[in-house]
């Protein structure tokens, strides 16, 4: 199988990757680049644990070929904090006890970020709809919704 040479911009850093064309962004992130904050589970775009932001929009990395990301901007959970500081969403998840096993959380936070970037003052119903593509088997979602709403207020306060 011919390999393809890709230039991917991940968390603001350029990476040169040589990979088989059938490999997904999720494969490359986890296996080639060691960015294991993006999780792997259903591989069918149902559970959402592989969510990353592609040019600012939430996508399932499990069904996206790495080759489709050539020349585009990818944000993973590793790139969310700045200068050693947690992003307000990360801090709010901690403060509200929104994390139990943690497996769904990186994706949950990235979906929330994509949504808040476009909708800075959501209602709880909006937040729940925004996170519909992210499953959590531990928390029952209430603390997650609370954390996202708190982060929205904090982000509005900083603006």
């Amino acid at each position: 199988m011919t390999k393809v040479a890709l230039t991917l911009t991940i968390n603001g850093q350029r990476h040169e990757v040589l990979t088989e064309p059938h490999r997904t962004l999720l494969d490359v992130l986890r296996a080639d680049l060691g960015l294991t904050g993006t999780k792997e589970n259903c591989l069918e775009a149902e559970c959402g644990v592989c969510t990353v932001l592609l040019d600012g929009r939430a996508v399932n990395a499990c069904i996206l070929l790495a080759a489709q990301c050539q020349g585009r901007q990818v944000l993973t959970i590793e790139g969310l904090g700045r200068d050693g500081q947690l992003h307000p969403l990360q801090q709010a998840f901690i403060d509200h006890g929104a994390v139990q096993c943690g497996y769904c959380i990186p994706a949950m936070i990235l979906s929330a970020k994509a949504y808040l970037d476009e909708h800075p003052a959501p209602t709880e119903a909006h937040v729940r709809e925004a996170l519909a593509g992210n499953l959590c088997r531990c928390t029952g979602y209430q603390k997650i919704a609370d954390a996202v709403l708190a982060a929205a207020r904090e982000l509005a306060h900083r603006r």
Partner: peptide, 9 residues
């Protein structure tokens, strides 16, 4: 259709 992740692509 699906969640945001699916509708985005």
């Amino acid at each position: 259709v699906g969640g945001h992740q699916v509708r985005n692509v």
